[in-house]
Amino acid sequence: MGLDFTVIPGYLDIVLLGCLWTIGITVAAALLSFFGGIAFAVVALYAPWIIRQPFRLVEWVFMGTPLLLQLFLIYFGLVQIGIDLPAFVAGIIGLGLHFAVYNSELIQTAILSVDKGQMEAARTVGLSRGQALRKVVIPQAVRDVIPPIGNNMIALLKDSALVSVIGVSELTLSAQRAIGATYRPFEFYLLAAAFYYVINLCMEWVQRRIERRIAISR
């Protein structure tokens, strides 16, 4: 059949729209995974035993099973219990929770490695335990894990392609739509790959800048 890249311009708008969806979903899921990760870390470390242990089990399950399987569970599971969310919301929740668990692992280690004196000093100046955590310990812990969290965010961008499988019209599914009309899979998947690659390079660039600023701030 050969290759014919001249078919691309006619469908470029569809693919670009998909690209915007991918960026939107990635940003929303990244925010969810960042704040979710902090919340999960606090629960995993400080919640009462009765909450902490089942929670750790759930975290373990999330880390031991594929994201695609989790997306099916969330998308179809929510429908089964009567919550009919749009596919993209289910996708954001699935991606966000999955990476929140990975971020939580990083943040837990970082919280434990913040010097104990910090907490004691914060308590001495009159902050409650919760305040000390929120205002003194967690900010320092999070700063320490920004680089690996950045890697998780870049992984999240690439895994956002999976939400095409539950029917979210992001970059991958848009490419599939164009392929449905033209029967040109190679050209359009390559185009989608190029878009992902460019977004990926931009994220790496931002990550390097942030890392440099953190290095200076120390």
Binding site: S164, T172, P185
Partner: peptide
């Protein structure tokens, strides 16, 4: 850079669906 910078799913699709074209 290329294989870590693009989704594995897209790489699979290029190979499986696009492969016959080349």
């Amino acid at each position: 850079s290329v294989f870590r910078g693009t989704p594995a799913l897209i790489q699979l699709f290029i190979l499986y669906f696009g492969g016959p074209q080349i």
